[in-house]
Amino acid sequence: MKSSHRRTVLTGAKVVLPTGVADGGRVTVEGSRIVTGRPDEPGTVDLSGHWLLPGFVDMHVHGGGGASFSAGSAEEALKVIGTHRLHGTTTMIASTVTGDLSDLAGQAGVLSELVEQGDLAGLHFEGPFIAASRCGAHEPSLLREPDPADVRKLIDAARGTARMLTLAPELAGGLESVRLLRELGVIAAIGHTDADYEVTREAIEAGASVATHLFNAMPPLAHRAPGPIPALLEDERITIELINDGTHLHPAVLGLAFRDAGPRRVAFITDAMGAAGMGDGVYPLGPMKVEVTEGVARLVEGGSIAGSTLTLDDAFRRAVAVDGLPVTDAVQALSTTPARVLGLADSVGSIEAGKDADLVVLDEAHRIAGVMRKGEWLSGPPLSPAV
């Protein structure tokens, strides 16, 4: 029997594959999946003069489109998801911010339903188990030590959809909670921390595997007190998150981290709050108020940087144009590495037969020309079918 699935053949683009760039490559989509194509297939779309990349994967995002995952509303969450999808992020996990445990459990209940219906790939709890001295845009009065019983409550509230939890391992219960998360199959991420080098090493040995936005919300590197940064950079078991918006990290620092860890261990994230995809103004971030001026988000009270207004297409463009990264390395950091870290590499993160047809089309200036998710164009098709 012939398949009833619609087939689309994308040709002519520079296709970024796991093996490199195929100039004038060919990708065939049937239904929601990438398949091996035939040379005589109808439905061809000519993408000459464009780039074809795997859909971006964001493992740390709080909001966008004027909405926030922490609102505890499915409607707001879908607005966040829709905003970032149009910028190429076809897979994301929802990040919360510090709140009462009961509030976070309620948010987890709402967001877990969106995971179950396929809109999200999981949940990330950032706080409340973080250091007050490095809390950034998290409400200090709501912080608490990472008691393993409380950690388990949050994970249980997510009903099997929790993929990551950020904590400060130097706090009482920190190392025990890292071990618990490993047992539960949830990523333990080190962040918003005052841990020294030795404690960070202990946390890695206990099972921590991600550095939450490396360099930000942790002690800076010092030659006699190295702190967590070198411990996280030097260990092959750690994937480091980097916010490539030009505000959170100087290009020289980003380049240093990228060269040291390599694209296999770097995940570019947005850490975006509600202003992503919007203009300047005042926005909520959990219980906090954030003012965005010229695209930079800071707390109304205190002035700390409060997430970003970044989208991953901008992070890609900056990686290539400003940081000088090869396109293949940028794609690995934006798609392949985060997909692998989140345990999603069987379905997303690269352009390969059998994977979801999550694709991003960029023009020669690396600007979004089309986005496909599971075989459906969210914007586009970018060009008319070839005659």
Results as ranks from 00 to 15, higher is better:
Ser209Thr: 12
Pro54Val: 08
Gly279Ala: 09
Arg85Gln: 15
Ile93Thr: 02
Thr337His: 01
Lys14Asn: 11
Ala208Phe: 12
Val9Phe: 03
Ala157Glu: 09
Gly370Met: 05
Pro284Thr: 15
Leu53Arg: 02
Gly122Ser: 14
Gly63Tyr: 01
Glu126Lys: 02
Arg237Ala: 14
Ala158Glu: 11
Ala203Tyr: 07
Glu236Pro: 06
Asp23Thr: 14
Pro146Tyr: 14
Thr36Asp: 15
Leu123His: 01
Gly118Glu: 11
Pro338Phe: 05
Ser102Phe: 02
Leu123Glu: 04
Asn244Met: 06
Ala121Thr: 07
Leu180Ala: 10
Val115Asn: 03
Ile238Ser: 03
Asp196His: 01
Ile81Thr: 08
Val360Ser: 05
Pro39Asp: 08
Arg264His: 12
Gly246His: 07
Glu236His: 09
Arg373Lys: 14
His124Ile: 05
Ser4Gly: 11
Gly173Met: 14
Ile190Phe: 02
Val9Tyr: 02
Arg318Val: 06
Thr44Cys: 13
Asp46Tyr: 00
Thr239Asn: 07
Ile269Pro: 01
Val327Ser: 05
Gly307Ile: 10
Glu30Thr: 06
Ser3Ile: 09
Leu325Met: 15
Gly246Ala: 12
Arg159Phe: 11
Thr90Cys: 15
Met59Asn: 11
Val282Thr: 10
Arg134Leu: 03
Gly99Glu: 13
Ala275Ser: 08
Glu352Asn: 03
His87Pro: 04
Tyr283Asp: 03
Thr239Ala: 14
Asp314Leu: 15
Glu294Ile: 01
Thr247Ala: 09
Val115Ser: 04
Pro146Gln: 08
Thr91Cys: 14
Phe215Pro: 00
Ala108Tyr: 00
Arg264Asp: 14
Thr193Gly: 00
Ala67Val: 01
Pro220Asn: 03
Leu383Gln: 09
Gly354Asn: 07
Leu171Pro: 00
Thr311Ala: 07
Leu78Gln: 10
Leu171Tyr: 00
Gly72His: 15
Thr89Val: 15
Leu120Asp: 09
Gly173Ala: 11
Ala217Pro: 01
Leu325Asp: 11
